[in-house]
Amino acid sequence: MNKMIMAIALGFVLAGTASANVFDRVKVEAGETLFRTECHRCHAVDATDPSYGPLLDGILGRKAGTYEGYEFSEALKGAGFVWTAGALRAWMEENDAFVPGTKMRHVGITDPTVQDFIIEYLSTLAK
């Protein structure tokens, strides 16, 4: 699916019809689609949407392990970092290597383009 999204975005650029705003919108929309297929089974971005994991609305800039009302692992509560784009990339790729002892288990998202699109989408969600 990410190849299709990249092809659409590249088509806009090559056709010369993509302004920065259009390309940014394509990245955000691609990120939302990828979020729904890769992350949404456990995470939500809206408090009215029940999820197993912590809500990801406003994740960028939030201190790790601090979303109120969610029972984080001791490892994540004590990690002491703030969620940045780089931290989210490392987490998506291999969360247990990034924060050993975390309770979250998932298949790693190793494609940097997919990571970038998901982060682009998450960056539009302000708490």
Rank of each mutant, 00 (worst) to 15 (best):
I8Y: 07
L10G: 09
F12D: 11
L14F: 11
T17A: 14
S19Y: 08
N21P: 00
F23I: 14
F23P: 00
E29G: 08
A30M: 03
A30F: 02
A30R: 01
G31W: 01
L34Y: 06
T37L: 14
T37R: 13
E38I: 02
R41W: 07
R41S: 12
T48L: 11
T48G: 06
Y52P: 00
Y52V: 15
G53L: 09
D57F: 04
G58T: 02
L60C: 06
R62N: 00
R62Y: 02
K63S: 10
K63M: 10
A64T: 13
Y67T: 14
G69P: 08
E71G: 06
F72K: 04
S73V: 11
S73L: 09
E74M: 12
E74G: 14
A75L: 07
A79M: 02
G80C: 02
V82H: 01
V82P: 00
A85I: 12
A85S: 15
G86P: 01
A87S: 10
W91C: 02
M92N: 01
E94K: 11
D96H: 10
V99Y: 04
V99L: 12
P100M: 12
T102M: 12
R105M: 09
H106G: 07
D116H: 07
I118N: 01
I119P: 02
E120Q: 14
Y121M: 03
L122T: 05
S123Y: 05
L125E: 05
